[in-house]
Simulated scan of single mutants.
Amino acid sequence: MDPRSEVLLRQADLFQGRVLLAGLPADDLLGTLPEAQGWCWHAGDQQALAARFGERSHFGTEAPQADFDAAVIFLPKSRELANYLLNALASRLAGKNLYLVGEKRGGIEGAAKQLHALGKPRKLDSARHCQLWQVTVESAPVGVPLASLAQRYELALADGPMTVISLPGVFSHGRLDRGTALLLEHLDGLPGGQVLDFGCGAGVVGASLKRRYPQSQLTLLDVDAFAAASSRMTLEANGLEAEVITGDGIDAAPLHLDAIVSNPPFHTGVHTNYQASENLLRKAAKHLRKGGELRIVANSFLRYQPLIEEHLGVCAIRAEGQGFRIYRAKRG
């Protein structure tokens, strides 16, 4: 059981009604709160929750439309996403209770200060390195549409300017990260055909690929519903079309690909987690055609080259700089 869920269950009598659990982990919490409903935007967690609890877990960037008596927000890593969740739920909870639970290392104490705008918050519990806060919503805000929170910026690329649109919670929200910037400089010479942008985020790499290789059949894949929505917005803003899907890692990707391009993730919430990236490197060969290419950017300190060579074939360092490396390998 996730420690945040354990803290909630220490006060289980508060959550026996129609409670919405926003950003809940994929544990047994829904099983112990029979009237509760989940709202999830992580495809892996949603897959696990749906397998056990069916339609009791809602997936997407918008809260479910069903009425609820109270809501719990599991504090996300992103402050912008936390602000969106607080607004989206508090706007529907006038006179009702809103709860915030999170890890101390995740900034729960600072985030709880935002509850003052809604009413008089109080700390209900502190255990398992987590805290649980509650506020009765006395001043319900006006709901703000998610699209209005999108950040838009322009990239000056070699083949012309590109518009990027990102939503709260998406990796490198509102700016171009150094690893992706390096990767954008080294997208030449890729095989045509079926191409995957793995961990697409706001769609920067995917949009660049589609513009550079317009005849390619491009798929953008991310585990996060907000990232997928951002990628669709970026593609539309640049007049491009591609398939955007959500799924839990490389297992959700199409087969028979000609190329996989990625700035792979290595964080889950506030925790470092290399599982998605390492699974990509171990299983890329299963998703590539013979002669298909894997091209990724990664921090220089990560020992990805031996892992790529073990599972795919000879791996070359195509470029490096700013603490990052571009790795390239082909399936033999």
Rank of each mutant, 00 (worst) to 15 (best):
P161G: 11
K120V: 10
L124K: 04
D177V: 05
A88F: 08
G249C: 01
L302R: 05
N263T: 02
Q194S: 15
F74S: 04
P264I: 00
L235G: 04
P264K: 06
F171K: 06
A227G: 04
G332L: 14
D188N: 12
R331I: 02
A48R: 15
W39D: 01
R212G: 06
A127C: 13
L8I: 09
K113T: 14
V135Q: 04
P141I: 01
Q215A: 15
L302E: 00
V101F: 03
R79T: 12
V170K: 03
H311K: 09
L209G: 03
L167V: 05
R128G: 04
R105Q: 14
R318Q: 13
Q322D: 14
F53V: 00
G203I: 04
A228C: 09
E278N: 13
L302Q: 04
L294A: 05
R128S: 10
R211Y: 10
A242G: 13
R105D: 13
D248Y: 08
G292L: 05
F53S: 06
R282I: 11
T246L: 07
I308F: 04
K286R: 14
K210Y: 07
A127N: 14
R331E: 07
G321N: 03
V270Y: 11
L49R: 06
A225Q: 01
P25Y: 07
L220H: 01
K96H: 13
Q215E: 15
R152I: 11
N263E: 03
G60E: 08
S139V: 13
G206A: 13
L240D: 09
A71I: 03
A253V: 03
A22M: 09
L288S: 06
I165L: 15
F226W: 05
Q194K: 15
A298M: 11
K123N: 07
S5D: 02
A228L: 00
L132G: 01
V261R: 01
D258W: 02
L115A: 02
L14W: 12
I165E: 07
S126T: 10
N279D: 15
L257D: 05
S5F: 06
G102C: 06
P306Q: 10
D67E: 15
R212C: 09
A63S: 13
F198C: 05
L182R: 06
V244R: 08
T163G: 09
G31R: 00
L85M: 14
H271D: 15
A259S: 07
H42D: 15
L155C: 09
A285F: 01
L294E: 08
V204C: 01
G239N: 10
Q11D: 14
L8R: 03
F171E: 00
S78L: 11
E243C: 15
D2V: 08
Q215W: 11
L20P: 00
V205P: 03
P25N: 10
I260D: 02
G174Y: 09
L167F: 12
R122N: 13
Q194T: 11
G160W: 07
L184H: 03
K104D: 10
L8P: 00
